[in-house]
Design a protein around this nucleic acid. Structure first.
Lengths: 218, 218
DNA sequence: GCCTCAATGTAACCACTGGTCACTTTCTAA
DNA sequence: TTAGAAAGTGACCAGTGGTTACATTGAGGC
């Protein structure tokens, strides 16, 4: 199992000025984003209010508008952070996998499911709002595209090397996405009841290992 | 393709008193639910406010609290309506299908996808709020269970008749649910871009027909 | 036909939310 | 030293879900 941190918080990036003044925060944007991440993870994505995020950072709520156009933009940043982390997790999974063979696919799928189950609330934000398609958040879209292309790329490689069956790599990737996301959603909404992250992965493989093997070259 | 009505509105049930008075509405509960359904379908599930639902029916918003404990209860009713309609659609699909063979499975899956794509906003409500698990809405849960058991039952029948491969019917049903729901979600969030209901079904089958056939007896 | 009373509606109010605006404080660069 | 941009604040707005006290109505018992 990959070594995902249970909490997505990261230390603030280094360019925060060392001066700690009362009035100017230093890197409020980052601080707000971190606060939003932990608030979402603590109390769910619905419970997020700009006022509480701001007050956790010790600032009044209009200050947030200096750094995020509106609440949706803050949520988009939370989502983007999630897709970046997801992409990193997938990259790590592939690095740790054997360099050839359809085992790589299993690792990819497991890493996806594991990520989503480790960070359920953030995962929900990643799918929640309507910022997916309207072109307002290009960097978010880039992060999504990176994740998708990662999978497409693995299929393309595997086909060249004779690991996977024929078919357009994009279609195969979408199929994998459907299965991974569908499973994760049923777990998140408790339609599938599992007692732990490990059991969730185990049951996922019970259901879809045969299908994954069907993607391998015959 | 099954003949789903594009809009989920139903005429009020018959027990509405014929008297049309100004003050007492007659069947406000049903009217509110209908208004909520069409509002959701027109403007999305986020846009639903109790006040607007009430005013569409020509009533002030506290009147709604005589019939729904809170907003969540109204949404639960919308969801329940959806599951009932979904169950009906699945029953119809099975009735129209040949009485034997794995073709029945294909019909079931197509009916599910078709329903979700025909009523995207209501489908989202069905998965949206957190009323899925907390035991507050038993009739909603019953409607969900009915849908699930319908599919489980089809697997059980098919196995007895030698149509489907071995495996616990519940697991097979969950697998089908994962695939159906996952696909529908990707379409709804525009990660899969399709131009029409028909194309959506077509692409679904492109992706998962092989998998469906894998569920048939070998 | 009248009268009671529960059911069903209304008006006024609450705390809170996302968002805006005018203003103040601070940092930085000239 | 100082001007101006950047980054805060406090007061305010309309709209929301929800509650409460009160008004209106319809139906059953006399």
């Amino acid at each position: 199992m990959s070594s995902l941190p249970p909490s997505p918080r990261k230390p603030s990036r280094a360019r925060v000025p060392r001066k700690k003044t009362a009035y100017h925060h230093g890197d409020l944007r980052r601080a707000l984003l971190d606060a939003a991440l932990s608030l979402v993870e603590e109390r769910g994505s619905d419970a997020l209010t700009l006022r509480e995020v701001a007050s956790r950072v010790g600032v009044t709520h209009p200050a947030a508008y200096r750094h995020f156009e509106d609440k949706t933009a803050l949520l988009a940043a939370v989502a983007e952070d999630g897709y970046v982390a997801l992409g990193d997790a997938l990259v790590r999974a592939l690095e740790e996998a054997p360099s050839r063979g359809s085992e790589r696919l299993r690792r990819l799928a497991v890493a996806y499911v594991d990520f989503a189950i480790a960070r359920p609330a953030q995962y929900r934000v990643m799918w929640g709002a309507r910022f997916n398609t309207d072109g307002r958040f290009p960097s978010l879209e880039a992060a999504i595209t990176r994740v998708f292309e990662l999978v497409v790329g693995e299929f393309a490689r595997g086909q060249r090397d004779g690991d996977y069956r024929e078919g357009r790599p994009r279609d195969l990737a979408i199929g994998l996405w459907v299965v991974g996301h569908g499973y994760v959603e049923l777990v998140a909404r408790r339609r599938i009841k599992v007692k732990s992250r490990e059991k969730a992965i185990e049951y996922f493989l019970t259901l879809f290992q045969p299908w994954l093997e069907g993607l391998a070259a015959r």
